[in-house]
Amino acid sequence: MFGSGDQTLQRAAGGDHESFATLIHEHQDMVFSIAWHFLHDRGRAEEIAQEVFLQLYRTLGEIESPAHLTFWLRRVTSNRCIDESRRGRWRIVTLDEATDVAHDADATDPLLKRKVGQMLQRLPAQQRLALTMRYQEGLEPSEIGAVLGMPLNTVKSHLRRGLAALREWLGATS
């Protein structure tokens, strides 16, 4: 017995473009947001997200379930972000720029959110990805470890250090 998600996946794997478009619509915000929060460059984030979906199209036959699809998309997007940062092709955002590009204006977001957005860009790649998976995707540390291919203790360490760095920096600037 297959759910509608399974059926969409099966049809997409069978070459049905409409079903594949449905999969893109279901997951594009997640994939784009991971890349956007990592790169802070809308153009590069879209490029990464497009490449992730093209890779998905080529390997749809390997995806076993909707849950596996979500896992696969998070993992591949994270890997591509890391690759991108290793190639050094992403633009370094200065603190002043980060303030401007951080995020759309949010009525509930006074100074703190803005500062957090700035600080995130200064964190090491792995810490930023771990925090993104925790606070964007709401994953538990063990799930983050599975997605990023890290031991649980390493994930906990990245989360702890990332939060500590934010606390320290925000404390120093408040």
Binding site: Q28, D29, M30, V31, F32, S33, W36, H37, R42, E46, A49, A102, H103, D104, D106, T108, D109, L112, K113, K115, V116, G117, L120, L131, T132, R134, Y135, Q136, L166
Partner: peptide, 12 residues
């Protein structure tokens, strides 16, 4: 603040 900052954003 992290939850707000890292909330999902719409794809273009």
């Amino acid at each position: 603040a992290l939850q707000r900052t890292l909330a999902r954003t719409s794809a273009p």
